[in-house]
Design a protein around this nucleic acid. Structure first.
Lengths: 113, 113
DNA sequence: AATTTATTTAACCAAATGGTTGACAATTCG
DNA sequence: CGAATTGTCAACCATTTGGTTAAATAAATT
């Protein structure tokens, strides 16, 4: 059925579930960067950062361009659309509740006819 | 620092990274349900479903009300706001790219002055 | 040709995850 | 009371995850 969408959502959400990887996404929002550049601000080893980047790559959130000996990573924001849409569906239930509450409160404060 | 927001995002994204748990959220969008009701459509054991529900609970995505021997779960869509907002920031880079592209294409098809 | 730079691969480790079964607790029903 | 229902807890297992270090590969520099 929807299993390819499902595994894509699995990958995207699980990629975003790690603080380090979210920081990497944040860094890449400034533009293309090499793995060394990306790893520099972190206290963990470059190998660990490299692994995190592969996770983001598998999720389609970033891609890699190899130029000589350096690998450049680039953000693919459109990959987040599915995750955004999925969440938005259920978050919308909250907006509905809010507007219902608002409606009720307005009715309550109405002068009785 | 931001660590409480960060660990909350950790919990929310990791909770959503599992297909079974996303199905549970979907089921709860219809309204409050008991754990037995929730577990029924799944092939895994009730214990496994119960564990998934605890993960969703830890993330603040659902809450539990105990009535007699049955535990009722309820969706808290507002908990998804943070995750939605986080994604929206980076997804917006895509919209920016799109509008830039659109702008360029319009310029290209313009009759030269 | 030898060295340095940029990164991956391989092997390993501890902790977390997603599943199981069996036993226990609490509530309801006959 | 005794039995059935609803769910948790505890122990266990295999796999995944996030980290490490050491060695390998590949390209640039000297």
């Amino acid at each position: 059925m929807n299993s390819s969408l499902d595994t894509q959502l699995d990958h995207i959400f699980s990629a975003l579930s790690d603080h380090t990887r979210r920081r990497l996404v944040h860094a890449l929002a400034e533009g293309e960067k090499s793995i060394g550049q990306l790893a520099e601000p972190f206290e963990i080893s470059l190998v660990a950062v490299s692994k995190h980047l592969r996770v983001l790559e598998r999720a389609g959130i970033i891609s890699r361009r190899i130029d000589g000996r350096t690998h450049f990573c680039r953000l693919h924001p459109e990959s987040l659309t599915q995750a955004l849409d999925w969440i938005a569906i259920y978050r919308s239930f909250w907006d509905q509740r809010l507007s219902k509450m608002k409606h009720l409160m307005e009715k309550e404060t109405e002068p009785d006819a």
